[in-house]
């Protein structure tokens, strides 16, 4: 089975991200693979470990995204494809999906697996658009794979009312829920072996995309500015005998939040 895993390099949201004048402060940002994409990679690795085949990771961006691709190789991906551009900052899902679709148009694969959304934008639009542009079936928010073959796959999807089970013909696109698998750690041997794995770099301008796709005119949506969410207020601890604290908690809920009023 040949699996493509598009990955996005995003700011590490575990760190304190600063916003100034409506822009994210780039200084001090640590860049990581979007966590849902790490889950997608883990799923792809598990599938190929069970059914055979290879995993190709793919990312769009400056030379910096090679760090993310190198990590993916260290985790076990077999090869990497870097679509190099001067900057993909400010791109929307439509543009990214267009570039991915063009890149993958003449590739051989059975499955494209991605995270259900990116950790920075949280849009969740790119995989759906990608499937549409490629004319492929898609199932989103997958929690498990079953009955895997090169021609079809059974998918467990987390829906609003429970788990939906569907069978999809391949090739196709799936997005994964983070409950699907716990991403593995890169072993030190994996990091050493990653050096020997192939990483191809393709200039984005060589893909033959319509020029407007890569320009601001290609945007379907635009992020106007960023704002920090309000600081979460510190909680209050009620200590002491429950016969005293419970009424006190109730009183506070009524008075301050309007509950049970």
């Amino acid at each position: 089975m040949q699996i493509i895993v598009p990955i996005k390099q995003v700011p590490d949201v575990a760190l304190n991200i600063k916003v100034k004048d409506g822009e994210i402060v780039q200084e001090g940002i640590s860049w990581v693979i979007s966590s849902w994409d790490e889950t997608a990679l883990e799923a792809a690795l598990q599938l190929t470990e069970e059914a055979g085949g290879e995993v190709t990771v793919l990312s769009i961006g400056t030379a910096k995204v090679q760090e993310a691709l190198r990590k993916a190789l260290a985790l076990g991906a077999h090869q990497a494809l870097h679509i190099q551009c001067d900057s993909s900052a400010g791109w929307d899902s439509y543009q990214v999906a267009k570039v991915l679709a063009k890149t993958l148009a003449d590739q051989d694969y059975n499955l494209i697996i991605t995270g259900k959304q990116a950790q920075d934008s949280d849009a969740g639009l790119t995989p759906t658009m990608l499937a549409e542009f490629l004319g492929l079936p898609q199932v989103t928010n997958i929690t498990a794979f079953k009955d895997v073959s090169d021609a079809s796959i059974t998918l467990h999807r987390k829906g609003d009312d429970g788990i939906e089970i569907s069978k999809m013909t391949l090739p196709g696109v799936v997005t994964v829920n983070d409950s699907l698998a716990e991403p593995r750690l890169a072993s030190m041997r994996g990091i050493m072996m990653a050096k020997k794995k192939p990483m191809e770099t393709v200039d984005i301008h060589s893909l033959g995309l319509a020029p407007e796709v890569l320009q601001s005119g290609g945007l379907m949506t635009e992020v106007v500015q960023y704002e920090k969410p309000d600081e979460r207020k510190e909680g209050r601890r009620f200590e002491g005998d429950e016969t005293e604290t419970v009424p006190e908690v109730m009183q506070n809920l009524k008075k301050n939040i309007g509950l049970f009023a």
């Binding site: 760090e67 190198r70 990590k71 260290a74 890169a186 072993s187 030190m188 990091i191 050493m192 050096k195």
Partner: peptide
């Protein structure tokens, strides 16, 4: 001697 600074960062992140 082939451990680069990028490898070192990846390794220490792990």
């Amino acid at each position: 001697k082939n451990w680069s600074s990028g490898d070192e960062k990846l390794l220490l992140d792990t």
